[in-house]
């Protein structure tokens, strides 16, 4: 194994007509890495203010058959989920990430919504997770694995519901990855970063696009838009009370 490694590396150097990189080259290469230089960034999302960025995220997500519901308070989240499940004719049984981020939502206002916390198993039909960031550029969700965020939730169940907070919507993949570093989780990376853009699909038979090839058939985003909540406190409380 080590011999093979040395042979391949030596072969590369012979083909390139040089020995191992010299000190000057090494310094240059290391500084290129350290800079984490951004390359070409599409203006599509990067040039937008927050409001338009959120709108672009929703539009791009809907373009790839993600469904999006906007709510303005945590209290509206259980309601929206119950509504969605009923509309899709799905049982009100959910496996949810043991993510403290989901604890702030008053699940008790919908006691019929049965929620188990943990990783997904073979029989789970609907999963619920938060996300790490939402990327406006292509309507993409960024989820990371961790002790509170198991990966199986993103792939095993037929329906995946994701709660996105308005403040999590960023313009580009680079912005989303910067949030990973800013939060002190830079290196080593989480075991997995999942960029998810719409439900599972395939076009392997006659180029016919079918949803739900192996992963989720449905991806539903509940966009928690609390910026609007300040303007609508009164209305919000009424709806929250109505839900009980």
């Amino acid at each position: 194994m080590t011999q093979t490694r040395e042979r391949i590396l030596a072969g590369i150097r012979t083909s390139l007509g040089r020995g191992p990189p010299d000190a000057h080259t090494l310094a240059e290469l290391r500084s290129r890495l350290a800079a984490r230089r951004r390359n070409v960034i599409p203006a599509r999302a990067a040039a937008l203010d927050e409001c338009d960025r959120v709108d672009l995220f929703v539009a791009m997500a809907e373009e790839v058959q993600t469904t999006v519901a906007r709510v303005v308070s945590p209290a509206m989240v259980p309601e929206e989920i119950a509504r969605y499940l009923a509309a899709e004719n799905l049982a009100a049984e959910i496996v949810a990430a043991p993510d403290p981020g989901l604890d702030a939502i008053p699940w008790e206002i919908r006691p019929l919504l049965r929620i188990r916390r943990g990783r997904a198993g073979a029989d789970d039909k609907v999963s619920l997770t938060a996300c790490h960031a939402a990327i406006a550029e292509t309507g993409t969700l960024m989820l990371i694995s961790g002790r509170h965020t198991p990966t199986t939730l993103n792939f095993l169940p037929e329906t995946h519901i994701v709660i996105v907070r308005r403040g999590q919507v960023v313009a580009t993949y680079e912005d989303a990855m910067d949030r990973l570093c800013a939060e002190g989780a830079s290196r080593p990376l989480p075991r997995v970063i999942n960029f998810i853009t719409g439900p599972s699909r395939t076009a392997d038979i006659e180029q016919h696009i079918e949803l739900g090839a192996h992963g989720p058939r449905r991806l539903h985003i509940v966009l928690l838009d609390e910026a609007q909540a300040t303007e609508r406190v009164g209305e919000d409380e009424q709806r929250g009370a109505g839900g009980q």
Partner: peptide, 22 residues
């Protein structure tokens, strides 16, 4: 011709301490 494929997955090493799956 997709804007982005459905799943782009960055994997780094095996299951980490505390991870529930992987």
């Amino acid at each position: 011709g997709q804007e982005f494929s459905s799943y782009t997955t960055v994997s780094t090493g095996p299951r980490q301490p505390g991870d529930l799956d992987g």
